[in-house]
Design a protein around this nucleic acid. Structure first.
Length: 549
RNA sequence: GCGCCAGUAGCUCAGCAGGAUAGAGCAACGGCCUUCUAAGCCGUAGGUCGCAGGUUCGAGCCCUGCCUGGCGCGCCA
């Protein structure tokens, strides 16, 4: 917040410096304002002089001196210093930090939100697991990541639609239906039908058992897979939705791949690509000439059996996303889908859409760790750990927090031993406990009949820890903007851990409710502000902010 | 063979559009509860940022090559 204000002021100074000192115009967007790492280097610092000097062969310290002169009389600043190779360090007046508390209190739940993405319609596609089985921990990571990214985008003013794309036709579902039928027949005393690549999980048997209860043995002789497919799809989708709900995730829309066929979009895409000379027949299959679009090999889009490969509906689906009027398409995929991305983007480009409006967030895999040892998982043997099993152990808050502790690019090691500890080692509770503590102080003040938080004497907040907290709180809106820009919710998680830590430290050193009534009121204002920021941050990642623990 | 991701403290990971003397949590060691919640705090120790070059005022971050691990390279999704 303060940083942004200072940046604005520096932009003005820069514009003044261009004619007056011959600063190079093109450096306008290159300089930054940051928090220095070390004590004594001010509250904020800029590399403006270094950037300007680097592009105009001037002495950086001389440019810094010119900047300092231009800044003369700035109301935010207590003093400025030129340091090192030409950094300009800013010492902000304490009052400026203290006043942020009034803004936080006034904005309350709105603090941290912005309109940076106003008017931008963005579609976030994630999970998109076909209904063949319960969600695995890998899906869990994706679900939480997609949801948190959606929250970040919404908090920055984007108009967000969360969408789940699925396919209930095709080979996978056929095998699923066959698996259910085999289990059904086994229950009727006819074993031996289980398909080679069938789904082996217990849930298939459960579905078969339900089917048996509902239908008796009347499906025994039929060759029709439809009843098995329909039953399995319904049961599994209900299960998936229940899991997502437990994780606190809802979708605005479920997009069925099949509708792309029904509405003729698949044929239309093929026709369009064919008209552009990007399609040809070979070996009985239809190929998409991706080599003409800069890729290293052509790809089959319709198999010789007449069935499209996943690629074709994927392209048609993206075409529909654009046609539905979205300005930005964000896809969250597991890294095993990496190979499909270039093909889809090529298809989008070939159809005349701007593929720079598609952002793909690829996340790496999840491994589970228990007692320092990796938990072995296999999809085929259905020995993978499901999100439901995970939730039964650790709960939604912990699951969400842990899934967001790493950036998407990093593999995520989920330490179950740490996650199940209801104690100090667990970072989730560390942050939540901070919030509960803050609420507790406010409660105590209320119960003791003390005067509540007051903005009247904020000037009393002069302890280094207090100013440190105010600075951190003031940085929250920028943090949200950056996390949204980078689609990186882990930034919020790290911020919260840091802020909670600063507060715990402050709490142990200074007393909020003390003898001095004015000081207590000012500190209560600080406490209330912290409560708001921690709560808003936790909301942003979908983790609850308990008022007591 | 090719593509993408990763390689930073014993372990798991941050490092914010190239910035100043590289950070956190866990584990280890030593302290702090008659006072607003000890699910907390304070302190100690811990590093050739995979390796080698390059770019520049400045590189963990950018470029090139190599090494290691993960994921892919299907008429599976």
């Amino acid at each position: 917040m303060i940083r942004t204000r200072l940046k604005t002021i520096l932009n003005d100074c820069f514009q003044a410096g261009v004619p007056r000192h011959g600063w190079p115009e093109e450096a306008a967007s290159a300089f930054t304002v940051e928090q220095p790492k070390r004590e004594g280097q001010g509250d904020l610092a800029t590399n403006l002089a270094l950037v300007v000097a680097g592009r105009s062969r001037q002495n950086p310290r001389a440019v810094a001196a010119q900047l300092v002169e231009l800044l003369d009389g700035c109301p935010l600043l207590d003093r400025v210093e030129i340091a090192g190779p030409g950094f300009v360090n800013f010492f902000i007046r304490p009052q400026v930090w203290q006043e942020t508390l009034s803004e936080i209190a006034a904005q309350d739940a709105g603090f941290g939100k912005s309109q940076a993405g106003a008017g931008k319609r963005v579609l976030v596609e994630f999970v998109s697991a076909n209904p063949t089985g319960p969600l695995s921990v890998g899906h869990g990571r994706q679900a939480v990541l997609g949801d948190a990214i959606s929250r970040l985008l919404a908090a920055t003013g984007h108009q967000v639609t969360r969408e789940y794309y699925y396919n209930d036709a095709g080979r996978q579902m056929r095998v699923l239906a066959q698996s259910v039928r085999a289990r059904y027949l086994e229950l009727l005393g006819e074993p031996g039908q289980f398909p080679e690549d069938g789904y082996q999980g217990q849930y298939i048997i459960d579905i078969a058992r339900e089917l048996l209860a509902e239908q008796g043995d009347r499906l025994r002789g039929s060759d029709d897979l439809a009843p098995f497919k329909v039953k399995a799809e319904r049961a599994i989708f209900a299960d998936i939705n229940a899991t997502l709900t437990r994780l606190g995730i809802h979708f605005d829309n479920y997009y069925n791949e099949h509708s792309l066929y029904d509405e003729g979009h698949i044929d239309a895409v093929v026709a369009e690509l064919r008209a552009k000379g990007l399609v040809y027949e070979q070996d009985g299959a239809v190929w998409f000439k991706t080599t003409a679009l800069g890729l290293d090999q052509d790809r089959v889009i319709i198999k010789s059996t007449g069935e499209p490969t996943y690629r074709l509906p994927d392209i048609a689906y993206h075409r529909e996303k654009f046609k539905r009027g979205f300005d930005w398409l964000v896809n969250i995929f597991g890294s095993d889908h990496i190979a499909t991305v270039p093909d889809v983007l090529a298809g989008v480009r070939a159809l005349g859409y701007d593929d720079s409006k598609v952002t793909v967030v690829l996340h790496q895999f999840v491994t589970l760790l228990r007692d320092g040892k990796q938990v072995k998982m296999s999809t085929r043997k259905a020995t993978f750990v499901t999100v439901d099993e995970l939730l039964a152990e650790v709960g939604a808050d912990v699951a969400r927090f842990f899934f967001l502790m790493r950036k998407a690019d990093s593999q995520l090691e989920f330490d179950l031993t740490l996650a199940t500890q209801q104690s100090q080692e667990n970072p989730v509770y560390y942050v939540q406990y901070g919030h509960a503590r803050l609420c507790s102080i406010l409660r105590q003040a209320d119960e003791k009949g003390l005067d509540g938080p007051s903005q009247a004497r904020l000037a009393l907040l002069t302890e280094p820890e207090e100013l440190g907290l105010l600075k951190a709180m003031s940085a929250y809106p920028e943090l949200v903007l950056e996390a949204a820009r980078e689609l990186a919710p882990h930034r919020v998680v790290f911020y919260l851990q840091e802020l909670a830590g600063q507060f715990h430290s402050y709490y142990n050193r200074h007393r909020v409710l003390g003898e001095d009534a004015s000081l207590s009121q000012a500190r209560l204002a600080l406490v209330d502000g912290l409560r708001i920021v921690l709560r808003n941050g936790l909301n942003l990642i979908g983790v609850s902010a308990p008022e007591s623990m």
